[in-house]
């Protein structure tokens, strides 16, 4: 992703998405600078996953634009996808392949120079190296989620999108994920995470947002938010018409 001088890393402008007669997103706008970590909260049906799917180029918005460093996503989606990582509700893993084969396949797909080496490095990072030759279908939910996170990092993405990444993780795995996200943040990678889990979100993010009924009703820097009182803010936003 080539740099556009003076532009934010990510610009989301007037995003609307309609399914039939239902509006999932009703004019969402925000910007993120490079290296920021935005955590979006919201109840079921708030439009969080729809927003993430649009950012991942899996869905087209009905109206509005997404720009990366000033360049419209529609102009060169394949170049954008090469620098994108996505953790979704689904694992995107092949049950009949081993952990190593899954990562090597995705590394190859992203044009990583040494797929085998990259797979080994990531398997060590998510603590699955000892199970590298086991088929993924035999993995527990938590192990699959750790491998899912490794898969999303296979191309060392500039922008990482995470949809409820803590689901199914035990404390050890959650701590591994927190460390990985911290390492990415230290390397100025931009992260957008959606979650129901207020505590997990607040402890990691630099920006906090709340989506309700398809609108971004709250957006603030983490430093400007009282972590103790954020739950009250969240429920106030939910009750607002």
């Amino acid at each position: 992703m080539a740099a556009g001088a003076g532009e934010p890393f990510l610009t989301v402008e007037g995003l609307r998405k309609t399914y039939g007669g239902t509006e999932a997103l009703r004019g969402v706008s925000f910007t993120l600078d490079e290296g920021e970590f935005l955590c979006l909260f919201g109840p079921n049906g708030a439009g969080k996953s729809t927003l993430l799917k649009i950012l991942a180029t899996l869905l087209r918005p009905t109206l509005g634009t997404v720009r990366i460093r000033g360049f419209d996503l529609e102009d060169d989606p394949e170049a954008f996808r090469a620098r994108l990582g996505l953790v979704s509700h689904q694992s995107f893993l092949y049950d009949d392949l081993t952990a190593r084969e899954n990562l090597e396949f995705y590394a190859g797909l992203y044009g990583v120079t040494d797929p085998a080496g990259r797979a080994e490095e990531l398997l060590r990072q998510v603590d699955l190296y000892d199970r590298r030759d086991s088929p993924v279908g035999a993995f527990s939910r938590g192990m699959q989620q750790r491998l899912t996170i490794a898969r999303a990092l296979v191309n060392d993405p500039d922008l990482l999108l995470l949809d409820e990444p803590y689901t199914g993780l035990d404390e050890h795995a959650a701590s591994l994920l927190r460390d990985r996200l911290g390492a990415l943040h230290d390397r100025r990678r931009t992260i957008v995470m959606v979650t129901h889990n207020l505590r997990r979100g607040i402890e990691s993010a630099t920006r906090l947002g709340i989506l309700s009924r398809g609108r971004l009703v709250f957006l603030s820097h983490r430093d400007e938010v009282d972590a103790e009182g954020f739950e009250d803010t969240y429920f106030r936003c939910m009750e607002a018409p």
Partner: peptide
């Protein structure tokens, strides 16, 4: 379609 792998292919740089 199992485990949503098609979505992973669609967000990859493979056309």
């Amino acid at each position: 379609r199992e485990n949503g792998c098609i979505s992973a292919l669609l967000v990859s740089p493979a056309s």
